[in-house]
Design a protein around this nucleic acid. Structure first.
Lengths: 234, 234
DNA sequence: GCAAAAGTGTTATCACTACACCCATGG
DNA sequence: CCATGGGTGTAGTGATAACACTTTTGC
């Protein structure tokens, strides 16, 4: 077999927008870029797609290289391909966003990549078009979380309803009525009440809940309307 | 400036999933591929991204090359990058879907590309992973149209409510109650009733409506809930 | 015993569903 | 005058939003 003649080949990278939730704020995992151009600047974790590697596989590998985690929720966000986005050489980047339980990766941060969690309200200047990617990922997260039970991916296996509410409030930068909120999330039937209580954040203690995994898989793509019109918020 | 060493460059293409509506069925515009491999087989319209060209620009150019149309609604669908998707040479394709008023392109079909409209129920075998792209585009169209007023892009500037309903029914392969349907679309406030009637498809005639362009732009991203739970249909 | 957070119930409004009849016209 | 498709109204049901008080317990 021959090749397509007279066409330009270009580099293809993946970049990961990695969200976490520390119990108060929505956070983003950034690294200090380790090579030129823009060496030492804050950046999303990324990497080049390898010759025999699928895009999703490259994204999974890149996330794993930084965090050591597997089985993380990831979704393709979009392809970014402005000609001069990387001044060194034309590079197309396929952005993925990931939602991780921050507890699984908040220790050994100061390794080879100089990774740090940043509050989304306080993101440093980023290289290339990474700020655009972050904004688009945040918009997508708000959009999806309004309809689908996606934010559970940011929580540990056991969580309380007040914790869940704080998470929603962080994502939408808005307050919700706790009575309506708990009625709504419980009405999905996705949550299983535990006997144990979380006692760190209040005297009375709040009951833990776990996801009902069967129902969670079944209803993941259903329209659940957690937030009526996220476009009208803020 | 130097270049990134020891990384693979690859071809980057765009492919267009072009939807149209003929008054009865949802249709897809396909071409007969003009070069090897798979020459003469049915294919989506596509093309390679040029050295100094952005992705969106490549998609717009590709659509225009086939149809001669400008200002068409287009949206990036996803990047497809399985290593062997093009057996000739590794090629990443960024798929875009487009919604066009079929009346603007249903004549001069037998030109250089041998383009034809196919009903979505009756798509021929397609090259590479184009069938995957079509399925994903159809799913995305259903998803978006359930929430946003996107299907108007498939209609001519003046249309009747029965025509709109047939379109929704074609997209969701389902029947809707006409009283509830018209109440719902009129309640969005997006439609302006015309004095003129469409008289071809009934004796009584149905009033034409036009989009209120101001409100259409304003509400395009709002959550309008045209279809309550598209996942439960079919 | 009090401060702090958890938990719960009611009412009014709105949106959705299901359903059936009259209207205008061309033939 | 009748067949065809266009157009409209209502009642019942379920979801949403607004709102305040009681419970538990660590200090």
């Amino acid at each position: 077999m021959t090749r397509y003649s007279r066409q330009t080949r270009m580099l293809v990278a993946v970049d990961c927008i990695i969200f976490g939730f520390d119990g108060q704020d929505l956070k983003l995992l950034l690294i200090k870029r380790g090579f030129d151009p823009e060496k030492g600047k804050w950046s999303l974790m990324g990497g080049f797609v390898q010759p025999e590697e699928a895009l999703d596989a490259a994204a999974v590998r890149t996330l794993n290289k930084l965090t050591g985690l597997d089985g993380v929720y990831m979704e393709q966000l979009a392809a970014f391909g402005t000609p001069q986005r990387d001044p060194m050489e034309r590079t197309l980047s396929v952005a993925y966003f990931a939602l991780i339980d921050i507890n699984l990766y908040k220790q050994q941060l100061s390794d080879e990549y100089k990774a740090e969690w940043f509050s989304l309200r306080d993101i440093p200047k980023l290289i290339f078009d990474h700020a655009d990617m972050v904004h688009e990922a945040q918009a997508r997260l708000r959009y999806k979380a309004a309809i689908h039970p996606i934010l559970f991916e940011l929580l540990p296996p056991k969580f309380t309803i007040p914790q869940l509410q704080i998470l929603f409030e962080a994502v939408y930068d808005a307050g919700f009525d706790k009575r309506n909120f708990s009625r709504k999330v419980l009405s999905t039937g996705l949550l299983v009440k535990q006997k144990e209580k979380e006692r760190a954040s209040s005297k009375r203690g709040a009951f833990y809940y776990k996801l009902d995994k069967r129902k969670y898989s079944a209803k993941f793509h259903a329209f659940l309307n957690f937030v009526s019109d996220p476009g009208n918020l803020r």
